[in-house]
Design a protein around this nucleic acid. Sequence first.
DNA 1: TTCTTATTTGGCAATATTGCCAAATAAGAA
DNA 2: TTCTTATTTGGCAATATTGCCAAATAAGAA
Lengths: 111, 111
Amino acid sequence: MDSKQKARYEAQAGIIKALAHPSRLFIVEELNRQKRCVSELTEMIGVDTSTVSKHLGILKNAGLVLHEKKGTTVYYQLRMPCLLDFINCVESVMEANALGQMETMISCKIK
Amino acid sequence: MDSKQKARYEAQAGIIKALAHPSRLFIVEELNRQKRCVSELTEMIGVDTSTVSKHLGILKNAGLVLHEKKGTTVYYQLRMPCLLDFINCVESVMEANALGQMETMISCKIK
DNA sequence: TTCTTATTTGGCAATATTGCCAAATAAGAA
DNA sequence: TTCTTATTTGGCAATATTGCCAAATAAGAA
């Protein structure tokens, strides 16, 4: 793997890492529904405001969300709606995993 | 967020975390092209065999790859091809980021 | 059986991520 | 100006991830 390729995979991994957290996935899904400010998201998630702010910072830094300020309130929105197709794919992995486990269980019972 | 929802986001994040590493992204793309054994991937990536084996273990554990043994060699393959659509989405985020930076630069020059 | 080759596992140090608290900043209201 | 409300930043301890080396395991060959 040459260094250009390596840099590309590192950049991709950076973006994916930004998604790889339960609260941030929740934020992405919620922001797909509508714009939300930090305190709204904080209440929904149920962790410290500073923690939510940092999660939003990570998403912003990865280029996944946009923000706009209205008074003291900051509204965030999803930048790339294609992210949801991706989450659907993750869901199908989860389904396939569950099915696989089911099959294993059943074939054990039969034997 | 109730505990069921929370569990779902944690499961999703678990799968995404499995993808969130440069070497593992390379592996996923390469396995989409063809089945590969550990030593082939090791040579392509250029890290210790044990490291590659652990990366494959992480992907296997997340249900992203399947494996079959032939003699002493273990061949891995991609389980969910939809993962590539997802990587395409990540690429479009990267493009959008690059475009955004370009715009910022240009608008600075104009002013 | 022993030898070889492929892979996995255990253990560890180096590094990265997380989530809290406290403090700083920002902007409108009084 | 001070007060309040919303958000971000700094710092830190707890936890998770990474990648190496060494050792273990697995299976065919001699």
